[in-house]
Amino acid sequence: MRLNANVSRLSALMLSIAALATPVFVAATQSLPPEVAQRQQDMKAMAEAAKSINAMFKGSSPYDAKRFKGAAETIRSTSGTALSSLFDGTVTAPGSKASASIETERQQFDKLAFDLSAYAAALSAAADHNPETLGPRMRMQAGDAAVGGGPLAKKVDPARDAAAMPAEHAFHLMLQTCTSCHAKFRVESK
């Protein structure tokens, strides 16, 4: 199951980034411009929410539909328009890792922000439909990667397709959206 191994590595990478960023975030937000502090606070909230969902999918935390939905709603409410608006105007600022390319490639940045919101909304709805257990309908099945998620896969329109896919698949595509956005629009520290 090459897909599962790749998905596990992607999940582990995203969660490692979140864990490493937390102590730095707390110290740094005290002297940041307000918009940068808000961006970082929202990114931290999304990372924590993703960690919570990931733990339920991995079985290291028991499935709790209310916690699952709450985590999905955290991501949904801090993505889409909310995320996009935090990068209005001049994007670069002291203490920010945002790339100036957000300004020149705004349409692509906004699409990723809205894709993130669509995946999170699908996860939230999945929790409503599965109040008792993280059952087979929420899990990825063989062939799900053929509907988005691989280089040879059919391209997914999250706004149209996310609600119809298993929640686990939507979660992994959501993590890929985060990774794509960071790779394209985040300046790495040297």
Rank of each mutant, 00 (worst) to 15 (best):
M14R: 04
S16V: 14
A21G: 13
T22G: 13
P23A: 06
A28M: 05
Q30D: 12
P33Y: 07
P34Q: 06
A47K: 09
E48Q: 14
E48D: 15
A49Q: 02
A50W: 03
I53R: 10
I53L: 14
M56C: 11
M56K: 09
G59M: 04
P62R: 08
G70C: 03
G70F: 00
T74C: 03
S77G: 03
S79R: 01
G80Y: 04
G80S: 00
G80T: 02
L83Y: 06
L83K: 13
L83R: 08
L86D: 08
F87Q: 00
F87K: 09
F87L: 04
G89H: 00
G95F: 09
S96W: 14
A98G: 10
I102V: 11
R106W: 01
F109S: 02
D115V: 02
D115A: 05
S117C: 01
A120Y: 01
A120H: 00
A122Y: 09
A126F: 07
H129Y: 13
L134K: 10
P136M: 12
R137G: 14
M138K: 15
M140G: 06
Q141K: 14
G143R: 03
D144E: 11
A146I: 02
G149N: 08
G149Q: 07
G150S: 14
D161E: 11
M165W: 01
A170G: 12
H172K: 10
T177G: 05
S180M: 08
H182Q: 09
V187G: 08
E188R: 13
